[in-house]
Design a protein around this nucleic acid. Structure first.
Lengths: 343, 343
DNA sequence: CTGAAAGCGCTAACAT
DNA sequence: ATGTTAGCGCTTTCAG
């Protein structure tokens, strides 16, 4: 215990060279000629002593801590969103960087504090992330910093965004149903999420609905109806039960989340309708439960891992950060909940 | 852009005092007398200039980076385990520390590299975490460091562990069933997880079964049977279907995970048994799906948030780290899946 | 090809 | 009560 870490000066001394020489061979630089002999002596001394560089000391001179800060509202809390952290982690590892993770819990005041804590530790760059895709206004401290927005758009900030391609995802959902032969009785459960709290809908809802409408339109058809509701299991259960009870005969359900689909399955089951025999179901997210359902749920995946990875890659790219929006594809996971419409 | 950060020397100059004076008032130390006047001038200058301390520079002298490293096998990937990160994050925030999160993906070789990356950045302490409770052998680099083990035990390492109290959880499960009147036909699905890959069972399984057996024994009864299987939905479905088909008449199921319970629900449903009318179900974990099930699933929660929080609290405690094991209670979430046995 | 010396931003003895 | 000075561990001119 209490063992003083061996420093570069120790290595230099042990190798019988100057700190300068040690520094050059240890940082593997070639722009200064070092004799093969000196190089060897230094490397051996370093190995023998178990030398490890002090990155924080180095950063004082180099201005680079090999460190990235991630600040989000509540990414770690959102079950399947942990994948964005994993994506960011792996990309960071590829370039020998470490990630500071922070979470505000949606508290605006905490946000500045956390960003400052990050900046005080001289992070090289920061990722500002949101749990669900939306417009945000990051704290002013971020102005002028190297930042990328993950899963959000900030009109005021001069930084790129990485978001899921929800518009294309809407088209994908429509195409999946069309391919199975559906044209009538297609209902969107969840819709734009145009509710009192979000009267204009949410980003994902709006984009998907636009994509869906367009692809159906191209095929000369349209949705039979859109149910605006919250995106949780109980809402799916309630709304689909009501729809079934209303006398409508939906033949395909496009659920805004796997959670809604979960509730929809229960409602369909209670009403004695089979999936996909009576009603096909397709949804969005690809949470674990999607594959646990019976029949397994076909769903369009939120590309969490890829979002995290892309964000770090952009940050580490030597190219300057242009304020453009990078849309990450959302792949369809084909499982067993889509079938041909009952004649 | 490119704005040089304002340094403490700038503040001192602007306030017309020496760096020392500035340092003392800015770090809010009281062990040296500073005139009210000087204090004010410094604070105003700092405010005016928007001074922020450079934590990495400071740490070079103080040997404290206000930083903790967390290395796990795959915590972020495990959906509901994100809560341990949130717990750690919040506890760290309380003491003005930031968290480096890393993940090895179970790769032993990567582990040393990541721990070194953490140590090279002079983290004050590290949390070594595992996704599921088990014995581990952390990389040698961790010897002599300030570390706490989260959700794992390392016999060789002189560090405390924070783990869920699985033994007591087993007792809780038994008690919940006994309280509802159950004494016969109690089956444990998942059991010790004594399978070819883990012939001696897993920690959680062994502890729970011991606790369960003990509490039933105290009540003068015992489990009707134990089914050893993997802890996933398909296993629950398969095993419970088989059990039902075998002619046994289980009246209560203790499922090792909510995932098993998920499959069990499907199996019971397919067999026309109601929950909890015909069969009561209790499980472990408290994932989101537990509350989505119908009827909502009574389950004993893995205290993820608390594990993360306790780990950081231990680390930050000024007391020396004794190699003892801290067991965190696992609370029963009473919902609707337990009822009296059918007479 | 190698070394001496300065300095990154901050803290802490030691003076005064 | 405040200022001077010397580092923390490393990189980087600038001489030799």
């Amino acid at each position: 215990m209490g063992e003083r870490r061996v420093t570069m000066a120790d290595v230099a001394r042990s190798a019988g060279v100057s700190p300068t020489t040690a520094s050059f061979v240890l940082s593997g630089r070639t722009d200064m000629r070092i004799s093969e002999n000196a190089r060897l002596k230094v490397q051996q001394a370093a190995g023998r002593l178990g030398y490890r560089p002090n990155v924080t000391a180095r950063s004082l001179r180099t201005k680079s801590t090999q460190t990235i800060g991630l600040v989000s509202d509540s990414l770690t809390t959102t079950p399947f969103a942990g994948e964005v952290i994993r994506g960011a982690l792996e990309a960071a590892r590829d370039v020998e960087h470490l990630l500071f993770i922070t979470e505000t819990g949606g508290d605006r005041a905490a946000e500045s504090g956390l960003v400052n804590a990050l900046l005080d530790r001289q992070v090289d760059a920061v990722i500002y992330a949101a749990m669900y895709t939306r417009e945000v206004t990051p704290p002013a401290e971020l102005n002028g910093q190297r930042v990328v927005l993950l899963n959000c758009l900030a009109p005021g900030l001069d930084a790129p965004s990485v978001i899921p391609d929800e518009y294309e995802a809407g088209r994908t959902a429509g195409r999946a149903l069309l391919a199975a032969g559906h044209r009538l009785g297609i209902w969107a459960i969840g819709g734009h999420q145009a509710l009192p709290a979000t009267p204009d809908g949410v980003f994902a809802g709006n984009e998907r609905m636009a994509g869906l409408r367009q692809v159906l339109d191209e095929a000369g058809t349209a949705v039979a109806g859109v149910v605006e509701c919250d995106w949780d299991p109980e809402d799916g259960y309630r709304e689909v039960s009501a729809l079934l009870a209303s006398g409508e005969a939906p033949r395909a359900l496009i659920c805004s989340t796997d959670r809604i689909a979960f509730g929809a399955y229960q409602a369909l089951h209670d009403a004695g309708r089979s999936v996909p025999g009576d009603v096909s179901v397709v949804s969005f997210d690809d949470q674990d439960i999607a594959s646990w359902q019976r029949p397994a749920l076909s769903t369009i995946a939120l590309p969490h891992y890829e979002l995290g990875r892309r964000a770090v890659e952009l940050l580490m790219d030597s190219a300057p950060l242009a304020p453009r929006t990078h849309r990450v594809p959302m792949p369809l996971r084909e499982r067993a909940s889509i079938g041909p419409p009952r004649p």
